[in-house]
Amino acid sequence: MANNMLEINNLTVTYGDFKIITEVSFAVKPGEIVCIAGESGCGKSTLIKAVLGIKQLGTFITEGSIILEGRDITHLGAEERRQILGTHIGYVPQNTRGSFNNIRSYEVQYQEAMRSHGLKFNRDEAIKIFNRLNFPDSDRLLWYQPWEMSGGMNQRMAIALAVLLGPKLMLCDEATSVLDVTSQKEVIEELSKLRKELGWSILFITHNLGVASHIADKLGVMYAGRMVEYGDIRKVLDDPIHPYTRKLLAAIPGKDRKLPVGLEGRPPLDGAEWTGCNFVPRCEYCTESCKTRPYRLEEIAEGHFASCSEGRTV
C-alpha cells in the first residue's frame, strides 16, 4: 500500500483514560477525498486530531500506526512533527475563528506561517491565489484582520494559506458545518477545484451526508469509536449495509416538513468496554451472536466493507 497518501492502520486512540477510537483502519489515496461521517462523539474529530498529533490536543495513540506517504508519523518528535504540519498536512478546523489570531492581520500571519517553514512570503503570489479562488477584494484582503471577515471567508483564507504552504493532504474537520449554505458551497467547490488542480488528498470529517455525497470518493461511517462501514460513496449511500448506516441515512431530513426519523437511544459512553457489537442496544436486527461476535470490518461487496450486514435485504 506504498502508494497511499495516508494510511491509518488498526488505530486506537485514547483521551486521558477514555478510549475514543478503537481499531480503525483505512487509507486515503493520492487525489482522493474520503469523508468520515457519524454522530457527535463517535470519534471522527479525534481521528483528525490523532493524525495532527499536536501535544496540546491531548490525544494519545495506544495502538496502530499512521503512515503518511510511506513514512510512519505515529510517534514523531515535536520538531519533526512541526516540520510536516502545514507543509505536508494542511488543516481546516470546524471553528471558523480557529485558524487565525483574530486580532492580527492576515498578512503577518501568512508571513509567520511561511517563515516558520523557511519559505518566503510573496504578496503577489498570495493575491494570485486569491484571484484564482475568486476571492472578492483580493488586493486588500491581506490587510484585514480575521474578526473583520465572515466565518466562510476565514475558512477560505485558511485554505488559500494551505495552497501557499503546499501540503498534499488536507484534513477538514467539519470545515463547512457552521457555514451558511452559500459559503458552504464556495468552500466545497474550492476544495474540489484544488483537489483537481493540485492533486490534494482530503480527509473530510462531516456529519452532513449531503456534503459528503457532493464531494467524496469514499465514505466511512463511524459509530462509537469504530468504523462500521467503508467504501465508495455511491455504494455506501445507495446500498448501505450496516444497520447503523441505514438508520443514519433514514435520519436525513426530507422536504416533507416532517421531523426526520431519529435514532432511538444513545451511543455507549466513551471508554466503555464492549464485547461484541457496540450497536447492539440500539439495533433492531441484533441476534444473540452479535453480543459476543468480535468486531471485524469485512468486505461484503467489492470495495464495500462493513462490520455487520444483519437485516440487509439485497
Binding site: 495532527l52 499536536i54 504540519l85 478546523p93 480557529g98 503577518v108 506561517a113
Partner: peptide, 25 residues
C-alpha cells in the same frame, strides 16, 4: 484558545505562537 491549535497545525514555531500571538492577545 482554538487559534493556538490552528497555528500548531500549520507548523508555526512555538516561539512565534507564544511571543507574537499569545502574548500580543
Amino acid at each position: 484558545e482554538e487559534y493556538v491549535i490552528g497555528m500548531h497545525a500549520r507548523g508555526i514555531k512555538e516561539r512565534t505562537i507564544l511571543f507574537k500571538n499569545v502574548l500580543h492577545n
